[in-house]
Write a protein that binds this DNA or RNA. Structure first.
Lengths: 184, 184
DNA sequence: ACCATAACTGTCCGATCGGACAGGATTGAC
DNA sequence: GTCAATCCTGTCCGATCGGACAGTTATGGT
């Protein structure tokens, strides 16, 4: 059953993204993915060097976006950095909500994931974001609130669909996080 | 190497709790746990019927507490149920923060976990809590905020230690969640 | 000491897993 | 049709895993 390489690769990535999000990385086997796509496991491994390679390819776009956000925030004026962090983070999370669900399923694997040639870990990324959300404050109370904001946004965004438009949900996420951070 | 059964069982549970929280359920093998405790895998299986049994025994106290909370909230007067939900949930999460970390590591396994003789799943538990946090409102905006509050509390509570007392952290979690829910 | 029970162990089993590999099938250009 | 490149497959491999099992050791009571 030949289909163009690009088509099959796309299908494999789509299914992997969903199954990794539902069952976790280790809870999903290559055979699971291949079976659902309708090809052999060996065919899957023809297109991707390893299971890890699939995971990294799924994660790369969101990590890239996240890193770009962190870089933007590092140049943001301190009086507005926290608010910019909230809006930026909400946008990244909404755009990559499936990847977020996947990451939430296996923080330990994601913690070790790094983009080729870039050794920033998830923990380091999160810390950069906490700093921005905290308006660069080192006060532990402020930083705890920032962790709460991250949890609020990521968990809510990864939750089952609701009867709301994406734009309305986005606004609610932003407003809620701002209230939490005493920025409303 | 004989030690009393209770002592060994306690050690096995402690180590399992930590490793499940760090590596996930599937990412932790029975041999990993046994090795760290200093006994054989077969000895571990003498004390616990299965890997699943360990997981359930670790989860049972927190699930029991969670269910008790939900039951209390069902009888709470509507005008104060949301505030009570916040405080009650924060207390449960702080008390069982390691279990929370463990659950965050494998939501799919936890989703299927049930206490013997009680078929409430994690999803059902969460929905009950969302209802209470929402003050029994069905408005999707209100319920989204409630999901945010759950995420905020659980993720922040499962985060690395900070330079704050437990009581101070508790207060911050409660206050932050109340602001998020427009209850401050 | 004897005995029953609890605790512990090494070994084995079947299943699953990620990945290697040789060979066959398909495709498009000439 | 031929050919090279791409794609796909079944099979096999070694490793790991959870768990079964028979046998040994340790413990406490009599």
């Amino acid at each position: 059953m030949a289909r163009s390489g690009a088509v099959l690769r796309g299908q494999l990535l789509d299914v992997a993204l969903r199954l990794f999000g539902q069952r976790g990385f280790r809870g999903t086997s290559l055979q699971d993915i291949a079976k659902e796509v309708g090809c052999s496991k060996a065919s899957l491994l023809y297109h991707f060097a390893s299971k890890e390679a699939i995971f990294n390819e799924l994660l790369t776009p969101s990590m890239t976006a996240f890193d770009a956000l962190n870089e933007t925030l590092q140049n943001a004026p301190t009086p507005v950095v926290a608010r910019q962090a909230v809006e930026g983070f909400v946008d990244v999370v909404i755009r990559y909500r499936q990847q977020i669900a996947m990451v939430l399923q296996q923080a330990s694997e994601a913690a070790e994931a790094s983009i080729e040639g870039n050794c920033t870990t998830s923990e380091q990324r999160a810390e950069l974001l906490v700093t921005a959300l905290s308006g660069r404050s080192t006060d532990p109370y402020v930083r705890l609130r920032s962790r709460m904001a991250i949890g609020a946004i990521t968990v809510a965004a990864a939750s089952p669909e609701t009867d709301m438009s994406t734009e309305a949900a986005r606004q609610e996420l932003v407003d809620g996080a701002l209230r939490l951070l005493c920025l409303a």
